[in-house]
């Protein structure tokens, strides 16, 4: 942002100060995220920089907390690292199990939220859609309702789904959904839906409807038009909605605490236990890995955004 040529000296000083303030705010935003990276290589089981770390002594740094991520919870962590060790790690290490759980829950809840959400966004973006405002409000409500209330409500519902469904309940009664993967997946899908709706609707608003009319004109049926014309163009919106839904699930702890059990221990729940129970820099190691993953995801989103703008004929300035 350049200053206009007619800026007074006072304005120039003020402009410099302004940039400095902004730099400070950016530091506030980013410092807590960067600080965990060096600390995760701490050789000591503490959360602060040791003398050795500050003097850049290699002895002050170690990979022990990353190693701990692998070995924590293993049956025989001290054995030679051969095939048995690795399979023990893969099956028993707590953080690995948590990562697997997070992946399973994240994948299925994202799939559910994205497919239902995209379909609904297609309907919502049609001008003929009846009761649009009311329905949008209902579909977005999982994002607005405080998560503690959601978790509480779902806890009772999943403890005994039949009691809520009333006449809709299946004849044979319903199984309990608390402490099951299905329960956590359904709950996370609910929480992810608003994000899918918002991002896909936003892409659809800028979608040129004459393209689908042209397709129809050329003899394509509605299904074919959707897959050949609409979907490729709204893909960026769908993907970023799916990413949001995945991150929502991947970062969610309250609902998992309420309706999941030991079996459904996800990464956030494991971290929560870690923070509340035994605080060790293992959490910082996980945090570092997660930060790297989010940088990767962020790059994907940015690339998708650029692609979508290129497709719509808008070039970045």
């Amino acid at each position: 942002m350049a200053l206009p040529i007619y800026a007074s000296p006072l304005e120039r000083v003020w402009h410099k100060t302004y940039l400095l303030i902004c730099a400070g705010i950016f530091l506030f935003l980013i410092a807590p995220i960067l600080i965990v990276i060096p600390l995760s290589f701490n050789a000591e089981p503490y959360f602060t920089f040791t003398e050795k770390m500050l003097s850049f002594d290699p002895e002050g740094y170690s990979l022990r907390w990353y190693d701990n991520l692998l070995t924590h919870g293993m049956q025989a962590p001290d054995m030679v690292r051969d095939g048995t060790w690795w399979s023990d790690m893969w099956n028993n290490a707590q953080w690995i199990r948590a990562a697997k759980n997070s992946a399973i829950v994240g994948f299925w809840s994202t799939l559910l939220a994205t497919s239902l959400g995209t379909l609904a966004a297609l309907g919502l973006s049609r001008p003929e859609m009846p009761y649009r405002k009311l329905i949008t409000a209902i579909l977005l409500s999982p994002m607005i309702v405080p998560v503690i209330i959601t978790a509480t409500g779902l806890f009772f519902f999943y403890s005994n789904p039949c009691s809520v469904l009333g006449p809709l309940a299946p004849e044979g009664g319903c199984a309990r959904l608390t402490s099951t993967y299905l329960g956590v997946i359904l709950a996370h899908a609910t929480l992810g839906i608003p994000f899918v709706i918002i991002t896909v609707t936003a892409t659809l608003t800028s979608f040129d409807k004459s393209l689908s009319r042209a397709a129809a004109n050329l003899g394509a049926g509605p299904v074919r038009t959707f897959f050949k014309v609409q979907l490729p163009l709204i893909t960026p919106g769908v993907v970023s909605g799916a990413l949001f839904a995945f991150v929502t699930s991947f970062d969610e702890v309250v609902v998992v605490l309420f309706i999941g059990s030991h079996e459904q221990q996800t990464i956030p729940r494991q971290m929560w236990n870690g923070i509340r129970e035994q605080i060790s820099p293992s959490i910082l190691a996980v945090a570092t890995i997660l930060v790297i993953i989010s940088i990767a995801l962020l790059t994907v989103v940015e690339l998708l955004r650029r692609r979508s703008e290129r497709l719509r004929g808008l070039t970045p300035q």
Binding site: L116, G117, L119, A120, L122, G123, L124, R126, E128, M129, P130, I135, I138, L139, S141, P142, V145, I149, T150, T152, G153, L154, F156, F157, S163, V164, L165, L168, L186, A187, A189, T190, I193
Partner: peptide, 23 residues
């Protein structure tokens, strides 16, 4: 348009709105 929205609406109402109301 409504049929496109219906599956999700039913899903959210059953797994979210009703449980919260019941709670």
């Amino acid at each position: 348009a409504f049929w496109l929205v219906l599956p999700l609406l039913a899903f959210v109402v059953i797994t979210f709105v009703v449980p919260i109301g019941q709670m």
